[in-house]
């Protein structure tokens, strides 16, 4: 089943009088349960594509079908609801709320669009999510008391609290050392295989991309390559890395 379908998506930014095309017709289909890596040099348009996929931005033209719903023309409020229900986000810099416990950080998305949950239910669900990412003993720790890897795991728990079908990760390992990067990536793989969560991550680290089962390479606003990572000629597998 096709979870995401893009049809000739374009995005043009207006810089004064000059129109700058960033995405020049992207067509793409992502099935449920895929672990996709989106790569490309800076300025290739991968972040813009990510923002459109994440419903943070609207394409200038084209169609975007998410779970059988055309979402490219939705209003800002409708997109906010959609993000809350169907999409999870993990950021490079974690973006946790400072001086706020891990539990409250994770429960935060529930305060938007999940008002039917009681305070206790929300905390229970957040605790369950943290247990799933292996932080059951860190519920009341503040971000400053957690390591980078732990912080990113809190962020993942937060992204999954509403049980979205899709998880977006923007350079999820950019601020982590290689060991914790590996842990986070293994967690992504586990979520992908065990919970059938579709994961789309933006990265320019080939090692990270190696964990994906599909690699989309962007250049100059168009898709240059779309294949499993092994097919990439210059792909370095984690085993062969120095």
């Amino acid at each position: 089943m096709e979870l995401i379908t893009l049809r000739s998506i374009t995005k043009t930014y207006q810089m004064g009088d000059i129109a700058v095309p960033v995405l020049k017709g992207i067509s793409l289909a992502i099935r449920q349960g895929e672990l996709v890596a989106l790569t490309g040099s800076s300025g290739s348009g991968k972040s813009t594509l990510m923002n459109i996929l994440g419903c943070l931005d609207r394409p200038s033209a084209g169609e975007y079908w998410l779970e059988g719903q055309e979402v490219s023309q939705l209003s800002a409020d409708e997109r906010a609801l959609l993000r809350n229900r169907k999409l999870g986000f993990v950021f490079q810099s974690f973006n946790l709320l400072a001086r706020t416990s891990a539990l409250e950080n994770v429960a935060m998305p529930l305060s938007y669009g999940a008002e039917h949950l009681s305070e206790r239910e929300a905390r229970e669900r957040a605790a369950e999510m943290l247990t799933r990412v292996g932080l059951a003993d860190r519920l009341d720790h503040h971000p400053s008391q957690l390591s980078g890897g732990q912080q990113q795991r809190v962020a993942i728990a937060r992204a999954l609290i509403n049980r979205p079908p899709v998880l977006f990760a923007d350079e999820p390992t950019g601020n982590l050392d290689s060991k914790t990067s590996e842990e986070v990536l293994q967690m992504f793989e586990r979520l992908n295989t065990e919970d059938r969560i579709t994961i789309i991550m933006v990265t320019h680290d080939p090692k990270v991309a190696g964990h994906a089962n599909r690699l989309i390479r962007m250049e100059d606003g168009v898709i240059q390559g779309d294949a499993p990572p092994a097919a990439e000629p210059n792909q370095k597998t984690p085993e062969s890395a120095p």
């Binding site: 993000r83 986000f89 709320l97 998305p109 937060r158």
Partner: peptide, 16 residues
């Protein structure tokens, strides 16, 4: 600002 961005990303509407 970043907190606001994050809250919006996880589904907060302008009015929230």
């Amino acid at each position: 600002t970043r907190e606001i961005g994050l809250r919006m990303a996880v589904g907060a509407r302008g009015r929230d």
